[in-house]
Design a protein around this nucleic acid. Structure first.
Length: 850
DNA sequence: AGCACGCCGACT
DNA sequence: GTCGGCGTGCTC
């Protein structure tokens, strides 16, 4: 009999329960576990489960059941933390995310680690649960060298985790996991009766009546004062109050005219305050609160009162954490112009008008008792969405919640529970909201779906809209894209557009200087942009002076920080291009080489321009600092504010309407526009275009549209300084063309070039400590792909990565370009066919930095 | 990710 | 001899 048959016989003899696939918060695939002892029923997909992991307990997420496989005995899951009818993540969402991870070849743990911020960490488990253990009846655990559990319930912390795991594996351990009540420590005033007598006892001076004879006149006066106005705490205080010297009152005391009497002092005012105001979180909270109400109390003094027994620290049930409050919204009775389709879009207008257009749909769905999820790429977009949409929830009898990294862990865990319990049915958030356990979702809205900020920079490198689409498909609900301008990917979707906000554009064309000065004095010869003024052109300078004269506000957008330079011939404006990719080569100062960030092609810096033969190159990326300096020279006395990653000046004066110039990177758009904004300038638009990335012009167009709608009501003059004045991404704004004019053209161009959405891209990163090993492995990966039938159109590279990463690790990149998702998944499967001598990671739908 | 294991060169 | 750097493999 073949070996296989006998194995199967064993299976039949002792039926193996269906194993569960469990994801842990580690960059590994889902692991198999058998159901906890005595578990009946299906795998509790979406529930959190405690599993033994390397001798300790870990929280995992059940992502489904699986077939028994492998020869080894599976460990049993220890405890299921969620009721199967109320999972931590809905099974559909689990299916959608896992499908994405499978196709992207990303270990499930990596993506779930990115999506589930809280609720499955060791700290969360320890904070939430009381874990007690005991040995099963009749078990003899005396063989263990360390202290082992007895048949009495004991806190698990008393035993070594590895010992517990050994006992657990033998099936000799009973365990309990009880939710810890959420408490917090507060300082409460004691009842007067509970305050210890010593705390209240004071000795005071009383006058003895009748007064002894033989008192001097002054002593008689002091005695009379004490009997009339006393008692008094101290001798010196009495003396001072009575207006006599210390020796007089001392004499009265010695003569028996006064005596110390122990008595109960009245409660201190700080105690009265605490009794009135109720328990305080901290000593300083007590001190500050009391002081604010006219009862001076220092934190030290509060500590003394606590130590004396006037107050108690007590555990009370913690109130729910404060969450962001909804912004009230008027609901107009508008028709719903939006399509009904699995994928649809809404673009154009201003943020506020887009949300007003979306409102009827959201209201209708919430009104039907269904749920809506809104995903924002960044804080600024999230804030605007919150302002535009959160108020709708109240009209539908539910509440809106935020789920983003801005919330604390406690707030996020509480918010998750509100969603899971159905108390909140409108969720607006970041990637942290994508897996939110909405009970009956009806719509997922992705905001600014083309934004690079949707790309997770951590482990999974997921592009959130990609996963959102899989989750929506798994729930069988529509996915909508909503933003200033559509990504080329969403152009083909059915949709609605709003007219773009009015844009007043003034283009400063550095490439073709005007024949005669039309705007202020220019020098006679036009030999290049030096003559037109750089980084601030004469046009821009003139406009900035007007802004200063009229006491208004301007914003200048400097090129991105960390921008690596392009070589530019100052004579003919030629920029060296890649031979394979038709993108500008980037200049790397350290190696004096020019590299293509797309395919890795590189060559050394040529000594002369191959266009005009000029022997001088310019390489410069002007930054925020330089621009701010130039503006300072130009506008003496004008306040200048900088806003980039390195420096963030407080903008309060600008928001108060005071004149000033704001100089910053794209980070500016994360802040509100200054209220009296008259001018916005892009100092060198080309830095957005001369990026080796086929999405560069789409990104540039999005920037222009976002600048045009930055101020919520006005249309400040938009000055664009550029060598490519005729670029269509800019022309459509200058000509007042409609919202779709540029994205639709871009989408057609992508079709011809075979780029997304007409192809699916993936970047395979191959890293090793020695460049040679990485190179060999990268070559082998490419050969394996070709051997499996990939074509030269589908495999680009391998090429060494332009940036040397962590000390001495040189990654090699290989691009895959497939006609659709299925073909990409097919190509990526080749990576699993064998092991490589280097680390191989996949980035599906890579963005930027290519 | 961490962590153990094992290989290899360096040095008391 | 063994110390320690670093590559490799494993976690059910």
């Amino acid at each position: 009999m073949p070996r296989r048959a006998s194995l199967r016989d064993v299976t039949v003899a002792a039926p193996i329960p269906q194993p569960w696939m469990v994801v842990v918060n580690l960059p590994v695939p889902a692991q198999d576990f058998s159901a906890p002892h005595g578990w009946t029923g299906d795998a509790p997909t979406g529930c959190r489960v405690l599993i033994p992991w390397r001798g300790e307990l870990m929280v995992g997420l059940v992502v489904g059941g699986t077939e028994p496989r492998g020869a080894y005995r599976l460990r049993e899951a220890v405890h299921v933390l969620d009721a199967p009818d109320c999972p931590w993540v809905t099974p559909q969402t689990v299916a959608g995310v896992c499908a994405w991870a499978r196709d992207a070849r990303i270990p499930a743990g990596l993506i779930w680690g990115d999506l589930l911020g809280v609720g499955w960490t060791a700290q969360y488990f320890q904070a939430q649960y009381i874990h007690t253990v005991r040995a099963v009846e009749g078990a003899d655990l005396s063989a263990f060298a360390r202290k082992a559990p007895t048949t009495l319930w004991t806190d698990a912390g008393a035993f070594h985790p590895a010992l517990l795991d050994a006992v657990r594996e033998q099936g000799l351990l009973e365990e309990r996991f009880d939710l810890r009540p959420r408490t917090k420590s507060v300082i409460r005033a004691r009842e007067l009766a509970e305050v210890p007598a010593v705390a209240r006892a004071v000795t005071v001076l009383h006058a003895v009546i009748p007064a002894p004879a033989l008192l001097t006149p002054r002593q008689t006066h002091a005695h009379a004062w004490l009997s009339d106005y006393g008692p008094h705490d101290t001798l010196s205080g009495w003396a001072k109050a009575a207006g006599v010297s210390g020796s007089v009152v001392n004499g009265v005391l010695n003569a028996g005219g006064a005596q110390y009497v122990a008595e109960m002092a009245p409660p201190p005012p700080a105690w009265e305050w605490l009794s009135e105001a109720g328990p305080q979180d901290t000593l300083s909270g007590w001190a500050n609160g009391a002081s604010a109400d006219g009862t001076p109390l220092s934190p030290t003094a509060a500590g003394t009162l606590l130590a004396r027994g006037w107050a108690d620290p007590v555990q009370v049930l913690a109130p729910p954490p404060a969450l962001p409050e909804a912004v009230p919204t008027e609901v107009d009775d508008l028709p719903d112009p939006l399509p009904e389709a699995p994928l649809w879009r809404l673009h154009g207008g201003r943020a506020a008008s887009r949300f007003r257009t979306l409102a009827p749909r959201v209201l209708r769905l919430l009104g039907q008792g269904r749920d809506v999820l809104v995903l924002a790429p960044d804080h600024a977009t999230l804030r605007r969405a919150w302002e535009g949409l959160s108020g709708l929830a109240a009209h539908a009898g539910t509440r809106a919640v935020q789920l983003s990294g801005q919330l604390s862990d406690v707030q996020r865990a509480y918010t998750w529970e509100l969603v899971r319990g159905g108390a909140a049915r409108l969720v607006i958030g970041s990637a942290h909201a994508l897996a939110a356990p909405l009970q009956d979702p009806a719509l997922i809205v992705v905001l600014e779906e083309g934004s690079d900020a949707h790309k997770l920079l951590s482990g999974s490198r997921a592009f959130v809209p990609d996963i959102a689409a899989r989750v929506a498909a798994a729930h069988d609900i529509p996915l909508a894209a909503l933003g200033a301008t559509p990504a080329a990917e969403s152009v083909p979707w059915p949709g609605a557009v709003l007219p773009p906000p009015r844009a007043r554009v003034h283009i400063v064309d550095y490439a073709t200087p005007p024949e005669q000065p039309t705007l202020g004095p220019l020098s006679g010869a036009h030999l290049g942009m030096g003559d037109m003024g750089y980084p601030i052109s004469h046009d821009l300078a003139r406009l900035l002076r007007q802004v200063q004269e009229r006491g208004r506000q301007a914003a200048l957008l400097a090129p991105r920080r960390g921008y690596s330079a392009l070589l530019r011939c100052p004579n003919c404006e030629h920029t060296p291009q890649c031979r394979n990719c038709d993108v500008p080569l980037r200049f790397h100062q350290a190696t004096r080489q020019m590299t293509c960030h797309q395919c890795g092609y590189h060559e050394s810096m040529p000594d002369r321009c191959d266009n005009c033969g000029n022997q001088l190159w310019k390489a410069r990326g002007p930054g925020t600092e330089w621009i701010a300096q130039e503006v300072g020279k130009l506008l003496p006395g004008m306040p200048i504010y900088r806003m980039d990653k390195d420096r963030q000046d407080p903008l309060a004066p600008l928001y108060a309407g005071e004149p000033g110039v704001l100089v910053g990177t794209q980070l500016l758009l994360a802040h509100d526009a200054p209220p009296d904004l008259a001018l916005v300038a892009i100092t060198l638009a080309d830095t957005w275009l001369n990026v080796s990335d086929f999405r560069a012009s789409e990104r540039y167009h999005r920037l222009l549209r976002q600048l045009a709608e930055w101020h919520p009501a006005r249309a400040p003059l938009l000055v664009v300084q550029t060598f490519q004045a005729g670029h269509p991404a800019l022309r459509v704004l200058a000509e007042g063309r409609d919202t779709l004019a540029y994205p639709a053209a871009e989408e057609r161009a992508r079709k011809e070039l075979g780029y997304p959405p007409h192809a699916r891209l993936a970047q395979v990163e191959i890293t090793a400590r020695e460049p040679k090993r990485a190179q060999t492995a990268a070559q082998e990966v490419a050969e394996a792909l070709y051997a499996a039938g990939a074509t030269a159109q589908e495999v680009l590279g391998p090429a060494p990565s332009p940036v040397a990463r962590l000390r001495g690790v040189y990654p090699y990149h290989l691009f895959l370009r497939a006609r659709n998702d299925a073909r990409l998944a097919e190509l990526l499967k080749v990576l699993d066919t064998r092991t490589w001598k280097a680390r191989v990671r996949v980035d599906v739908n890579p963005r930027g930095g290519m």
